[in-house]
């Protein structure tokens, strides 16, 4: 009575149902996120229009402009120092942000993970609140601390340590501080999620086999926490590289990052093809970072089964 085809038919019906169910999510993402990215790619090869937008005439200038600039008079190409320095600054600031959040975030996550069950929830809540809080407001809060009339300068002057306020706002240091501040929870949460699963019997075994606390940290805990550390680093690095709000508030008009440079091309610059080419370049850097992540964590997870 049992037809041999029944199971396959059942399965293909199941898969068809699953496609139908995921259709709305796929459509909205395609329409309002993924699809437009392809238009950006197209625009990067067109000619800028006089009032923004583009003319439908192909031109390589958008891409040339990413790193080079054309002399107005001699038409010769030379390295665009301004762009190069913005690229370098963006990458360095993002790496520095990742490193600092890693140095502070790992011990913090470890601290939360080793609290007793009851208080752990509270610590976790304390780290989750900033994560959910508006990034703009948190940047604004940092601004009020480090500006010339801010808390730090006021206190230092009150105690007579300095006579005039130290200029902290509108520096690279301000951007770094702000980004570390706003992205720290993004580091702590994935690292915590990983450390929470850490089997402390392994640590006990290491101590039993004569390891010192430091060696336990470097030989047992950190290697086991590596997927979390990498995930956290990626989660911090990607938004840091494309940061727009934090550098534009704390860096002022001079200390631009890539995000601000892109915005400039769509605003005052009125050079949409250049802005598009810069966007694609930013995405390429992010893709490389993601590939490194997939390589590392992907293979790691496979090894651990």
């Amino acid at each position: 009575m049992t037809q041999p085809g029944t199971i396959e038919a059942e399965r293909s019906r199941d898969i068809r149902k699953r496609w139908l169910l995921s259709l709305p999510a796929l459509l909205i993402v395609l329409l309002a996120a993924t699809g437009p990215l392809l238009i950006v790619l197209l625009y990067s090869f067109l000619t800028p229009g006089p009032y923004g937008d583009v003319l439908w005439k192909p031109s390589p200038d958008g891409w040339i402009g990413v790193f080079l600039e054309r002399d107005i008079f001699t038409e010769t190409l030379s390295l665009a120092d301004a762009h190069v320095s913005i690229f370098v600054r963006s990458v360095l600031l993002s790496l520095a942000t990742t490193l600092v959040t890693l140095l502070f975030g790992f011990p913090t996550a470890y601290f939360i993970a080793t609290r007793p069950e009851r208080t752990r929830e509270l610590w976790l809540l304390l780290i989750t609140i900033p994560f959910w809080t508006n990034l703009l407001i948190r940047t604004f809060a940092v601004l009020q601390i480090i500006r010339n009339e801010g808390l730090i300068n006021t206190l230092l002057m009150k105690f007579g340590l300095i006579e005039r306020p130290i200029q902290m706002l509108f520096t690279d240091g301000a951007i770094l501080t702000g980004m570390v501040y706003v992205y720290l929870p993004l580091m702590v949460l994935p690292v915590y999620a990983n450390l929470e699963k850490l089997d402390f019997r392994l640590v006990e075994a290491a101590y039993d086999l004569y390891a010192t606390p430091f060696r336990v940290l470097t030989k047992i805990i950190i290697p086991l926490a590596k997927p979390g550390l990498i995930a956290g680093s990626i989660l911090v690095f990607i938004p840091a590289l494309g940061a727009y709000v934090t550098p534009s508030i704390l860096g002022g008009g001079k200390n631009l990052m890539l995000g601000n440079l892109i915005e400039l091309q769509f605003g005052q610059g009125r050079n949409w093809p250049l802005g598009s080419a810069l966007s694609i370049t930013l995405m390429l850097i992010v893709t490389v970072a993601l590939l490194v992540y997939v390589r590392n964590v992907g293979s790691q997870e496979k090894r651990h089964g």
């Binding site: 995921s22 999510a25 796929l26 993402v29 395609l30 309002a32 996120a33 993924t34 699809g35 437009p36 990215l37 238009i39 950006v40 625009y43 937008d53 990607i238 938004p239 590289l241 494309g242 727009y244 890539l258 995000g259 892109i262 915005e263 769509f266 949409w272 802005g275 598009s276 966007s279 930013l282 995405m283 992010v286 993601l290």
Partner: peptide, 26 residues
Amino acid sequence: KYAFINQPLMVPEIVTAVALLIFFAR
């Protein structure tokens, strides 16, 4: 499907913003 659904997480916000600006302008 996974890649598609999570795609907005993978792209810097500023790039999505620019893409939508262009697209919606049209």
